[in-house]
Write a protein that binds this DNA or RNA. Structure first.
Lengths: 348, 348
DNA sequence: CTGTTAGCGCATTCAT
DNA sequence: ATGAATGCGCTAACAG
């Protein structure tokens, strides 16, 4: 019923081994026989059995990419760049790898389960993107899992994620702290002294680092922070909207709102506008990431541009062994302060 | 070196068969022995070999989701919904399926290659999202491939894509034509007679259907279309920006711009604004899809809301056999006209 | 350059 | 309820 390699061999009048060799292309085969084999493959409409092949060769062509939220372009852009370098269909790499993205939805359990599933499949490589959860138990579990993966020969790369020491994983981490600091310093430079901060979910490295950068800037300029000025939420628009209303309620005298990311900033803008406040005349707004839509906000968002596509591409190349890993296994990717219309001098 | 099922069996003092049975859970096993086995699994830190398992069982737990552009939330939202229903980690389905999304980048070759790769892996199901390429040869090739997949027992579901007759694939198609028509009728109702249209890439079903709806509306109201009023581009912001400038150059008297989707509409807004035109007082703008950011445009975008998450979830359930397929294997999902501030009466 | 031989690790009959 | 035996389809030595 289902066509096997043996069928192809019979039709091409060669041994199964020869068929395997022409299919894998990593062994010398006479041009004439190769053609005969290819012809038989075509005629029989044969497709290689992936599991059988993986079992026999003890390796697979699966490459996993883990993302926290596939609906968020932040991850989509990275994932797309990684995938294009993995070389799957149409990629430059030639080999036909199955680059697949797995959506954890920000859930620790799912992250771990996906890692196990990928381990099961004997994945060739795994790339984890975005911030990590800060729960100690979970971090330990992930680290253990990553250690096992690298030990088993799976290349593991972290992209936009803090390093995982002693796991063998290569890390390309974003300088969220530095970016956050630079951004807030920009606002302080404009004269702001009363800044609200809409943070991401607690227990996330990205959230913490960006917030730390913000606070470092305030401290460096002798500005004492009011506890009312910080609100935690999710990384989405709605969260920014709600949090901004809350901030306004707590302290109407704020002259600026710094958001965890661009989506949150967009929600903040909406809330301010609906509250009858002008941006930036009454309140300045800043985001983070510089996603494509940020330039279309009105006014355009001041933000920190993260080279998501570049970082993803590099992570993909490293995962494929086509680029050398950074020395020490860790490289820091910096963001670039991008000033646009949403930030200006404070009122009054 | 690597732990196998046999090792577990030895440690638990049972036969390999028994270990297999407790792991798969679809066979009666005494509670006491089950515990012993599980304990051994835990102690040895055993992970099932996916390829071996798939080979022996002749089925795999892989489910593929094909998207045209993973960086576009249009696809991200659908993919996320599909994945959550597939039941992978944390999904409601219980089973541990590896739901993976593959990014074709809109390339026909990649689409085909991914399909082949998934076929190789003996995927349990495949969901194809978004519009299809209209190249006849490619469509035939895809149809043939889908036929083989369903024939081999892989469930194939099309989500937001036209039906593929005689392939055994279930289709949940979006009513792009109806949505496009309704949208343009809304503008005509406001008094518009000179409407520019920024279409997506040619040779894409989505592009054609939306454009056909637009033209049907014009025809129904006796409006003759000027060939200068239609421009083709990509489904992104930049394309909308460029196309709008081009439209303005060709005919400055246009009173409205209808865009292929929301991202394009955002670019159109930017171009209009930079040209000193007010929205909607000077020119009305409309998008399609109602992606999350559309409500944050200034003014908020008039668009057609597509229930992406709902459709994706349904597609996922059908792919898992947890929901009955629509009668005839085809269901049409309608969009909903969503009027917001970007559309108004024409000037003058 | 090509054929032969032996498993890869597991799921499944068939027994018991 | 459990064990023993067989083979899934392929690749990797090893010969020649």
């Amino acid at each position: 019923m289902t066509v096997t390699l043996a069928d192809v061999a019979a039709r091409a009048q060669v041994s199964p081994a020869t068929v395997s060799r022409v299919l894998n292309g990593n062994y010398p085969v006479a041009a004439s026989t190769r053609e005969r084999v290819l012809k038989a493959v075509d005629e029989l409409d044969y497709v290689l059995n992936g599991p059988a092949s993986a079992l026999a060769a003890a390796t697979s062509d699966l490459v996993g990419i883990l993302v926290n939220d596939i609906a968020d372009p932040f991850f989509g852009i990275m994932a797309g760049a990684i995938q294009s370098e993995i070389g799957g269909p149409g990629g430059r790499a030639g080999g036909e790898r199955l680059a697949v993205v797995c959506n954890t939805g920000g859930s620790p359990e799912r992250e771990l389960t996906y890692l196990t599933l990928l381990q099961r499949q004997r994945a060739a490589a795994v790339v984890l993107t975005g911030g990590a959860m800060e729960d100690a138990a979970h971090q330990a579990a992930v680290a253990a899992k990553l250690g096992k993966l690298t030990e088993a020969g799976t290349r593991v790369v972290l992209c936009g994620r803090p390093p995982a020491p002693r796991t063998g994983a290569i890390a390309l981490t974003f300088d969220n702290r530095g970016g956050g600091r630079e951004l807030t310093e920009h606002l302080i430079g404009l004269g702001h002294r009363r800044l609200g901060y809409i943070a991401g979910p607690e227990e996330r490295t990205t959230t913490r680092h960006r917030l730390e950068g913000h606070r470092a800037a305030l401290a460096a300029h002798g500005i004492e922070e009011d506890p009312r000025w910080t609100v935690h939420g999710r990384y989405d628009r709605r969260s920014g909207y709600d949090a901004t209303l809350e901030l306004l309620r707590r302290d109407p005298s704020l002259t600026g709102v710094v958001a965890a990311n661009d989506s949150v900033a967009l929600g903040a803008c909406a809330a301010l506008r609906e509250s009858g406040l002008r941006i930036p005349q009454d309140v300045s707004v800043a985001g983070f990431d510089d996603l494509p839509f940020s330039i279309d906000a009105v006014p355009a968002l001041t933000t920190v541009r993260l080279p998501l596509a570049e970082a993803g591409a590099r992570a993909g190349r490293i995962a494929m062994g086509r680029e050398e890993a950074p020395s020490g296994g860790i490289a820091t990717v910096r963001g670039e302060l991008t000033v646009r219309g949403s930030s200006g001098a404070p009122r009054g």
